[in-house]
Design a protein around this nucleic acid. Structure first.
Lengths: 368, 368
DNA sequence: CTGAAAGCGCTTACAG
DNA sequence: CTGAAAGCGCTTACAG
């Protein structure tokens, strides 16, 4: 594969190499001007010859002018997690989304796994080798991690749940909204007694989901009964046992259950069936999460957590931060996005995917 | 972060920049020679100042001499799979292994998702931008994919199962050996009637596993009974139903079941329990796969498919192929690894992780 | 407005 | 043996 250069195009058209570079890149501070037709001709020739800017050369030139990156072409995704545990599918979904978004502006994503502290060397090497323009962080990111990254001066954005107390750029799913959406949907179907079954309050997302759930219950004036909030953290071991006990407890029984833990609603439906409860006839089930095994299989209504979208937005935010860094020349800095810029905490709204597990009886019959 | 260059080191020591480059890289054809002490001094200074070779500059220099890569620093992993399906954990495990191995020689891995044909543009752009040194391919790789990649002249290695008919460099788990290992382990525990439960013969790995299983059954002179080979492709819908029927069918009943599909042995144990069969008292269970949810939870003996290792070995193979490409100068080419080199099909052996689901009764009691 | 030049950091070829 | 130079492809500053 022959590498096509700006010089090749210039030779071909009998113009200067600089004119080609200018036509292709629109150097912001260049005093060069080109007639539109000529510009057009250059662009056409470039595509015809299959010109792709050489990343290495660009990078090297950047180094010369000690100019911070304003168009990233390589973003590193640091995955924090021990090497002997399988990669979290949620993190992988975010990675996938980020790659998709980056590819739109011809940037790519480098995967870096950081399991132990010695892996910081990898990260630092990439920074020193000048081959990465910014970082996306996924996993249990702590203040310590952030402090480690700051001296490198590269922009970074945290994707998903994290454990930082200092202000950072971050993108995550709006878990409060998810809890609220669950209630809102079930309430709109006429339910007034809605149960919420989770696996504890250990993680922030669990507390946030529950908070959203409870505030919506109050807001809509539904049954605010403590006994409707269940915990099934042990269900993995004793399949169904504790859940059955809990389901028998509240009187009257709820007409709908929101299962606020990703991906287990399918099993819940089985258990309800075993208990002799018809879904959705006697009890509606609303699931939660993405990726969600069994959602299609069981045709379950669920709240989708768009983790791909978190990755996409993270990549975009990183791009924005980079574009806002001060340039070496006098271009106007995008207002509010330079060093005085506040840190962005972007929240992505969940959406609801309708299945049959929340259909009212009439609808169910009319469709059969 | 200040970038430290060879020139910085040279200035500091009052020697030539070329001497520094030579000390650090051992340019193979250079006529330069250095006194060991001087060399040592340079290396020490380099580490003290935190010197890391600038990738972009290296790449650019490579372009000058039109020399094929012999030390890769950026490998692209192309993941073939539709964008709306979650990433396969098996592929992700291979990616993780590859990244780990690459990081050992200071190379990194770029993730490229190719779901539709338009994504070829991404791949080609990376090649034309000169920013990738080789490819690792995961997913349903076909001859068509390979043909698409060949003109780029970059070395590539396929990881895991694929659908190519032409000779390629590939690394995969040895599924035949997995089937054999299952029988061997159970036979060594005294079992003579071993069942094998899978989910069909659709995929090559399924046929291979079964082939290994059957050949070992014959080899060890165990019960070679067709009825011991079960299929539960429908079990996802009708939990347990068909499997129960099948388990009742052979008479006498098997004393052990090898579940030849990744990751469902835990559920199988539940079903056996429901059937009133004690594990491992009345029937032993041997699982299969990696990642394997529930293996630890259920303390199940299983055959581990080391997908990480597949990734590692793939990265190493790619490195070897690159190193064997002809150089522009007269260095000896590693024998048998240049263009006349055969294509490598590396098979990684699975290993067995012992749990309690295959313990004999005596052992079980003695441990309680 | 256009063209020639400088130089990023590196590896190699060439001259003393 | 050592040193100065060439040049990869690009972006920017400088001169006509």
């Amino acid at each position: 594969m022959k590498i096509v250069t700006q010089a090749d195009i210039a030779r071909r058209l009998g113009c200067s190499q600089q004119a080609v570079g200018f036509a292709l890149n629109n150097y912001r501070n260049s005093k060069v001007s080109l007639r539109p037709e000529k510009r057009q001709l250059i662009l056409e020739t470039a595509t015809k010859l299959g010109y792709v800017p050489n990343r290495a050369a660009r990078r090297l030139t950047r180094a010369r002018f000690r100019k911070p990156v304003n168009e990233m072409d390589l973003v590193g995704l640091i995955y924090f997690g021990s090497a002997d545990v399988d990669l979290d599918p949620v993190c992988i979904a975010m990675m996938s989304g980020a790659e998709h978004e980056l590819s739109k502006f011809h940037a790519s994503l480098t995967f870096v796994r950081a399991g132990e502290s010695s892996d910081w060397e990898k990260v630092e090497r990439l920074e020193r080798a000048g081959s990465v323009d910014g970082w996306l962080l996924v996993g249990p990111v702590t203040d310590e991690v952030v402090d480690h990254l700051k001296p490198g001066k590269l922009p970074f954005v945290i994707l998903g749940d994290h454990r930082c107390t200092q202000p950072v750029h971050a993108v995550n799913v709006d878990h409060m909204a998810a809890g609220r959406l669950a209630v809102q949907h079930l309430a709109s179907l006429g339910h007034r007694r809605i149960a919420c079954l989770g696996t504890g309050m250990q993680y922030l997302y669990q507390r946030q989901t529950l908070e959203g759930f409870r505030s919506a219950i109050k807001e809509f004036g539904l049954d605010d009964d403590e006994r409707l909030l269940g915990d099934c953290s042990t269900w993995k071991n004793v399949v169904g046992k504790d859940i059955m006990d809990w389901l028998r407890e509240p009187d009257p029984r709820p007409t709908a259950v929101f299962f606020s833990e990703p991906g287990m609603a399918f099993e819940l439906c089985q258990i309800l069936k075993d208990l002799g409860l018809e879904v959705p006839g006697e009890i509606s089930v609303l699931g939660f999460g993405s990726p969600f095994p069994g959602a299609k299989r069981g045709n379950i209504t669920y709240i989708e957590l768009p983790m791909n979208e978190v990755g996409c937005q993270g990549a975009l935010l990183l791009q924005r931060i980079a574009a806002a860094l001060p340039h070496s020349f006098g271009t106007q800095v995008e207002p509010g996005l330079d060093s005085r810029m506040g840190f962005s905490e972007i929240k992505i709204s969940p959406s609801l995917i309708e299945g049959r597990s929340t259909q009212s009886r009439q609808n169910d019959e009319s469709k059969n």
